[in-house]
Each structure stands twice: as structure tokens, then as C-alpha cells.
């Protein structure tokens, strides 16, 4: 297993770590038994634009790096655009992930979708 420099950068100095106090969309996927949990916090404005995003992650280097990268990728985007973020976009942005680590990037995409859904549910 070999992580790219981008993965290691995002692991050692992750962006957007922590909770957003006034988040209006929160999504969590995974379970401790599987060794990975990803929780995404979104602050979405009235125009459905993601103003801020953050994460808390229990998982491997790839999971942390995917969380960091994925949150970076959706800040400033509309929820419609962000909802279309695919795990492969995250993998590409990270310069690739080892095969056995692809599922960690899937978690990131799923957690974002869950957070957006949470926001929509609350709004409805």
C-alpha cells in the first residue's frame, strides 16, 4: 500500500477538522465495528450554497484524507452540485488511492449526501 503525497498532506494536515456549531446539515456513515465512521457537518445558506463544511472521522489515513479533500471540494458549491460529488472525484483529487482503500472515499461521498439529505429533511 502506497499513499500519494497529496493523501499524506491531507492526512497530516487535514483541512476542515471539527464540528460546525451551527451546522444545518449533518450526516454520519459507517460503524465502529467496521473501523470507519465519517461525520460531515455542513453550513448551508438560504441560496442552498455550502458556506462551510467540516468533518470528524474515525478511520485510516485514506479515510481522513478523503474527508479533508471532500470537504474542500464542496465548500462554495450548491447542494445540488455537491450532491453529485462522486467518490472517484475524491480519489482523483487525491492523486489515487490503493485498491483496498477505495471504500474509504466512498464513505466521504456518502457522508456528504447524508448531510445534504439531513438539511433537506430539516427544511421540509
Amino acid at each position: 500500500m502506497e499513499y500519494t503525497d497529496v493523501v499524506m498532506e491531507n492526512f497530516t494536515c487535514p483541512k476542515n477538522v471539527g464540528e460546525i456549531e451551527d451546522a444545518n446539515g449533518v450526516g454520519q456513515v459507517g460503524s465502529p465495528a467496521c473501523g470507519d465512521i465519517m461525520k460531515i457537518f455542513l453550513k448551508i445558506n438560504d441560496d442552498d450554497i455550502i458556506e462551510n463544511a467540516s468533518f470528524k472521522t474515525f478511520g485510516c489515513g485514506a479515510a481522513v484524507a478523503s474527508s479533508s479533500m471532500a470537504t474542500e471540494m464542496i465548500i462554495g458549491k450548491s447542494i445540488e452540485e455537491a450532491g453529485k460529488l462522486k467518490n472517484s472525484d475524491v480519489v482523483d483529487a487525491l492523486g489515487g488511492l490503493p485498491d483496498v482503500k477505495i471504500h474509504c472515499s466512498v464513505l466521504a461521498a456518502e457522508a456528504i449526501q447524508a448531510a445534504i439529505q439531513d438539511y433537506k429533511n430539516k427544511k421540509a
Partner: peptide, 14 residues
């Protein structure tokens, strides 16, 4: 508790 092993290993490796 509450953290995952590979993250510890990578942090140590660095």
C-alpha cells in the same frame, strides 16, 4: 479508544 490503528501508524511513521 475512539481511534483507528492505521492513523496512529501513519502519524508515527511521519
Amino acid at each position: 479508544a475512539y481511534i483507528e490503528g492505521e492513523s496512529i501508524l501513519l502519524s508515527l511513521d511521519v
